[in-house]
Amino acid sequence: MSDTPALTADRVRADIAGLLGCDPAEVSADENLLDRGLDSVRIMSLIERWRAAGATGLEFPDLAERPELGHWTALLAGEKP
Score class of each variant (00 low, 15 high):
Met1Ser: 15
Met1Cys: 14
Ser2Ala: 06
Ser2Cys: 13
Thr4His: 14
Pro5Ser: 15
Pro5Ala: 09
Pro5Met: 15
Pro5Tyr: 13
Ala6Cys: 10
Leu7Pro: 11
Ala9Val: 11
Ala9His: 12
Ala9Trp: 01
Asp10Cys: 14
Arg11Val: 06
Arg11Phe: 12
Val12Ala: 05
Val12Pro: 04
Val12Cys: 02
Arg13Ile: 01
Arg13Trp: 05
Arg13Val: 02
Arg13Phe: 00
Asp15Ser: 15
Asp15Val: 15
Asp15Tyr: 14
Ile16Arg: 04
Ile16Asn: 02
Ala17Thr: 07
Gly18Gln: 13
Gly18Leu: 07
Leu20Met: 11
Leu20Ser: 04
Gly21Thr: 12
Cys22Gly: 15
Cys22Ser: 12
Cys22Tyr: 14
Pro24Lys: 10
Ala25Arg: 06
Ala25Asp: 10
Glu26Trp: 03
Glu26Val: 07
Val27Thr: 08
Val27Asn: 07
Ser28Ile: 13
Ser28Phe: 01
Ala29Asp: 13
Ala29Pro: 12
Asp30Lys: 06
Glu31Ile: 05
Glu31Val: 00
Glu31Asp: 03
Glu31Lys: 06
Glu31His: 01
Glu31Gln: 10
Asn32Phe: 06
Asn32Glu: 06
Asn32Leu: 12
Leu33Cys: 13
Leu33Tyr: 06
Leu33Ile: 05
Leu34Arg: 06
Leu34Gln: 08
Leu34Trp: 05
Asp35Gly: 06
Arg36Ala: 08
Arg36Gln: 07
Gly37Pro: 05
Leu38Glu: 10
Val41Pro: 05
Arg42His: 09
Arg42Phe: 09
Ile43Arg: 01
Ile43Pro: 08
Met44Lys: 13
Met44Val: 09
Ser45Cys: 04
Leu46Asp: 09
Ile47Cys: 00
Glu48Tyr: 02
Glu48Asn: 13
Arg49Val: 14
Arg49Gly: 07
Trp50His: 07
Ala52His: 05
Ala52Lys: 03
Ala52Pro: 01
Gly54Asn: 08
Ala55Gln: 00
Ala55Cys: 00
Thr56Asp: 15
Thr56Lys: 11
Thr56Ser: 10
Gly57Ile: 09
Gly57Trp: 04
Gly57Met: 10
Leu58Thr: 04
Phe60Ile: 00
Pro61Val: 05
Pro61Asp: 06
Asp62Ala: 00
Leu63Thr: 01
Ala64Asn: 14
Ala64Gln: 06
Pro67Thr: 08
Pro67Ile: 03
Glu68Trp: 12
Glu68Val: 07
Glu68Ile: 04
Glu68Tyr: 10
Leu69Gln: 00
Leu69Glu: 01
Trp72Asp: 09
Trp72Ala: 05
Trp72Val: 07
Trp72Tyr: 08
Leu76Ile: 11
Leu76Trp: 02
Ala77Gly: 12
Ala77Gln: 10
Ala77Phe: 14
Gly78Asn: 01
Gly78Phe: 14
Gly78His: 12
Gly78Glu: 04
Glu79Gln: 11
